[in-house]
Design a binder for these strands. Structure first.
Lengths: 343, 343
DNA sequence: GTCCGGTATGTGACCGGTCACACCATAGTG
DNA sequence: CACTATGGTGTGACCGGTCACATACCGGAC
C-alpha cells in the first residue's frame, strides 16, 4: 500500500496555536466556554495547517461512526436504486454516510453482508427486501443491538422496525377498477412458487375478486418466472385459452410488458382484446405505447421513510412495528378499457 | 443517542484465553509464529465471546479504512446505477466497502461531497462524470494524496487516473452506418449549449460526416434540453422542415424516444420516414416498438474498470492517463433502414 | 479578606486495535 | 559449554480524537 503523508492532527494545531489539544477539540465541536480570542487563534491555526478532524479517530472515541449500512438486492434494479436515492436524501443532510452492499438476492450473501456491516460499527442498518428468514435477522438484530429497519418485511424484535406498502388495498383497487370497466373474467400473472415464497398477491387477488362479486378461477392464475420472457409465455398461454380472461393483473411491470409483447406477436390488440395492469410503475412504463396502466410503488418514499424510521430508532424512539404502511396508487394509462364483448 | 452494550475487545479475548492481546491480534490476522495449541485456545475464546474485531479501531491503527468513496450524479439514473454495480462487484470481493454520495450534478455539492469523503479517510475516490473543474479536482487530489479515478473526464495529477469511452469512433460508426444504408441527409439532436459545456458530440459529428463524404448542414443540428420533451420538440421541428434529414443521431436514448414520440404524433413512420439512432442503450431501449437502434455505453464495465484502476493506483501502479478507452458498440435494432426516397 | 460560583483552559486516561521491539525458550553450531 | 539463530509470546507506546476531571482565574457576596 502507498504510504500517505500524515495529515496534521489536533495536537499539531494545539502546538501551533499554543493551547492544549482539548481546546482545539472544543473549538472544532463548537462547544461553549471558549473565549473569542483563543477560538480565533485556534481557527487560524486550523486553516493554516489545513487541518481536518479524522472521522476514524472520532468514531473510535465517540463510539459511533455516523454511518448507516444498506443491504439490498442490486443497485442497478430500478426498485432498489430509487430506494437508495430516498435513503440518501434523508441521511446525507443528517450527517450520515451510507455504505452499500448488494446481496444479489442470495440469502447467504445477504447474511454475510449484514455481518460485515456490523463489524464496521455502522450505527444502523437498513435491509431492503431481505431474503433471510425473519427469525435469523431478528436474532442478529437483538444480539448486536444495532437498530435496523426492514423494507417490506415485518420482523419482531426490540431494535427493529419495518416500513412497508399496502398491497392488499391496491390489489382490491385494481380489481375494482377492472370490474367497473365491465370485466368479469380477470386473470392474474404471478411468479412461480419457487420465486415467491409469500404468495400474498394471489391471496389478495382472490379476496378482491370476491369483494367485487366475482369468482376466482384457478386456470386464470398464470405462474411464470419474473422476467420479460415469463410474462411473454404467460401472455401466450393466456391468449390460447378458449374462455380466456378479458383482463389480467400482473405481478410486475416487466411481466406485464412480456404479456404486451405476446399480444403484439399474436395480433391481439391492447386494450381492445385484452386489458393489462402492471405493478411498480417502472420509469419507462409511461414511454411504452400503449402506455402501461399500473400500480405505482412509492420506491423513493419507501427509502425516505425507512431512513427516517432508522434515525428515530437511533435516538431511542419506540420500535413497535405499528407504522402505517405507505399507500400505492393505481395509475390509469392506456392498457385498460371496457371489454369488447360484454357478457 | 442510544447507549450500546460494549462488544468484547481483543483484551477480553486475551484474558479469557490467558494470552496477551498481541497474540490474539496475531491469530485474527493469520500471521505466522503462533503455535497450533495457542491458536486453538484463542479461537475458542473468540467464538465463545462472539468477538469481532472493530473495523474502526483497526482503521485508526493501520491508517487505512478499506473504504472507497464514490461521488456521482444520482443513483437512480440508470447510467450511474450500472456504474455503481460494476464498482461494487470489483470492490466487494477485494474487501473494500463503498460509501455513496450524490452530487445531483451540482458542482458545489460535488466538491462538498469530495471533501467529506476525504475527511472520512477513504483509501481512494471514484468521481463519476464530475462537474467540478478539472483544475480544482486535480489540486484537491494532489494535496490530499488520496488516489482518485475519474470517469469520463481526464485530469492531470500524480495520484489521478481516468477511465473513459471512445465517443469519436462510435460517432463515426453511427454516421458510416447511416451513410451505408443510403442516407445523405443526416441530422443531429444535441443538448443546448448551457447543458453541455464540452460539445464534443457536435465536433465528432462534423468530422464523421466529412469522413463519409457528406457535408454538415447547420440547420440539421437541433439543440434542445436533454429530456423526453426536448427530444419531442426536436422531432417536431425536424419533421416540419422542408428539406428535412432522412435520419437523426441523438445525444441520448431519452431524446431519441422523444423524437420517436413526435413521429408518432405527426404520423411519420419510423423507420420508413425517419431513421433514428440513440445513445446509451438504456435498459428499456429494446422493449420499445420499434426497438431503438442505439450506441451501447458499457456502464457496468466502466464501473469495473474504474474500480480496478483505483485498486491498482492504491498499490502504487503508475497513474499516467494513458489507459485505453473502453469501446462503444452500435446496436442495430428497428429504428433504422434505407431512406424511402433515394436522392 | 475569605469564600463561592462560573468561565476558561489543561491533564491524563481511554476508545480498540496495531506496531516495534524486548524477552524467553529451545535447538543447532563451533 | 558458551553463542547464536529462530520460533513463540509479552510489553508498552501509538493511531487521533473524546471524555472526565483538575485547575486557574475572575468578579461578586458576605
Amino acid at each position: 500500500m502507498l504510504p500517505r503523508p500524515n495529515r496534521p492532527t489536533i495536537r499539531d494545531v494545539a502546538r501551533s496555536a499554543r493551547v492544549s489539544h482539548q481546546t482545539v477539540s472544543r473549538v472544532i465541536n463548537r462547544e461553549d466556554y471558549t473565549s473569542a480570542k483563543t477560538r480565533a487563534r485556534v481557527e487560524r491555526a486550523i486553516s493554516q495547517l489545513g487541518f481536518r478532524p479524522s472521522h476514524t479517530a472520532r468514531s473510535l472515541a465517540r463510539r459511533r461512526t455516523n454511518t448507516i449500512g444498506l443491504v439490498m438486492g442490486d443497485v442497478a434494479n430500478p426498485f432498489f436504486s430509487d430506494v437508495v436515492r430516498g435513503i440518501e436524501d434523508v441521511l446525507s443532510p443528517a450527517g450520515y454516510g451510507l455504505i452499500l452492499s448488494s446481496s444479489r438476492r442470495d440469502p447467504e450473501r445477504e447474511l454475510r453482508n449484514v455481518k460485515h456491516l456490523l463489524e464496521r460499527d455502522t450505527d444502523g442498518l437498513i435491509l431492503a427486501a431481505p431474503q433471510t428468514s425473519p427469525d435469523e435477522l431478528s436474532r442478529l438484530a437483538t444480539r448486536s443491538a444495532v437498530p435496523m429497519v426492514f423494507l417490506n418485511r415485518t420482523v419482531q424484535g426490540r431494535h427493529v422496525a419495518a416500513v412497508w406498502v399496502d398491497g392488499q388495498t391496491a390489489t382490491a383497487e385494481v380489481v375494482a377498477y377492472l370490474a367497473k370497466l365491465g370485466h368479469r373474467r380477470i386473470g392474474l400473472v404471478v411468479p412461480s412458487r419457487e420465486e415467491d415464497r409469500a404468495g400474498n398477491r394471489e391471496a389478495w387477488y382472490g379476496l378482491a375478486l370476491r369483494q367485487a362479486g366475482l369468482d376466482p378461477k384457478p386456470s386464470w392464475i398464470l405462474r411464470e418466472s419474473t422476467s420479460l420472457e415469463g410474462g411473454q409465455s404467460a401472455g401466450q398461454r393466456l391468449l390460447a385459452m378458449a374462455d380466456r380472461p378479458t383482463a389480467v393483473a400482473c405481478h410486475s411491470d416487466v411481466m406485464a410488458i412480456g404479456v404486451l409483447q405476446a399480444c403484439r406477436e399474436l395480433r391481439a390488440a391492447v386494450p381492445r382484446d385484452l386489458s393489462i395492469v402492471g405493478w411498480d410503475d417502472v420509469p419507462y412504463a409511461s414511454l411504452l405505447r400503449p402506455a402501461l396502466t399500473t400500480v405505482r410503488v412509492p420506491r423513493y418514499e419507501l427509502g425516505q421513510a425507512s431512513a427516517r424510521r432508522l434515525l428515530a430508532l437511533m435516538t431511542g424512539a419506540p420500535m413497535d412495528g405499528s407504522d402505517e404502511p405507505l399507500g400505492l396508487e393505481l395509475i390509469r394509462r392506456q392498457t385498460c378499457r371496457a371489454p369488447r364483448v360484454i357478457r
